[in-house]
Nucleic acid binder design. Sequence first.
DNA 1: ACGGATGGTAAGATAATCTTACCGCCCTGA
DNA 2: TCAGGGCGGTAAGATTATCTTACCATCCGT
Lengths: 120, 120
Amino acid sequence: MTDNPTERRTQLAERLKEARKLAGLSQGQVAKLLGLHRPSVSEMEAGNRRVSADELSQLAELYDVSVAWLMGEVPETVDAADPRLQLAARELSKLKPEDLERLLKLLAAMRDDTSDPKEP
Amino acid sequence: MTDNPTERRTQLAERLKEARKLAGLSQGQVAKLLGLHRPSVSEMEAGNRRVSADELSQLAELYDVSVAWLMGEVPETVDAADPRLQLAARELSKLKPEDLERLLKLLAAMRDDTSDPKEP
DNA sequence: ACGGATGGTAAGATAATCTTACCGCCCTGA
DNA sequence: TCAGGGCGGTAAGATTATCTTACCATCCGT
């Protein structure tokens, strides 16, 4: 299972280390660039220290990788399975951002209203 | 500047709140599902508490959005990479066929109506 | 108005991180 | 050979953030 918390932290740690080396940086350089102390970087890569969202974002930028890759998120484009979804997504992509926002809110409302009575 | 640390935290906070509501969940439900206390969720959405990588990942999964969108990462491919599109598409898939039909017509109408004057 | 659900916030207890320091390893040059 | 420097891992007390419980206000549906 990939959503085990411990496994997740371990994978992030490994990828942080891998990405840093690929970027040709030392822990000390990273620490200085992010305004941290070197042990903090070391512990991040050992999986013994949490990585905050801010730090994650800065690290991804610094290492020139995506946050998604660091986290082991599957690339996952829109589900190719259902053709209706493809059609819908195509239509959605033509909308202006604000229209999309309104639509999303509408959808959420529809789902809440029309759900069957047994739903907790 | 989008990589200002304070702005980043604020944007994440806003998106967490937005995504949660779009997912139709209360702070209490989220807290229970993630094994947190409700105030923690509240502070996350207020930008007063850091969000760890683990939590970020779990929240993204729970809300059916990508981590990248939560963090405000610029979409690399403007294509189907927009998590809002994925979310919307997923929502659409829950609709009954006839409702989807009507919605698609509505989308087309929105697209035509709200276009700027130069549009043919 | 009541009861229940929701969300914001406070304060002390708790757990995490920070900071400094020391350690060993691997180079490289004197 | 061995001093010097860079690198990375780890320990321990100081510091800071988070947790936990609690109280409050607001909004609904009854």
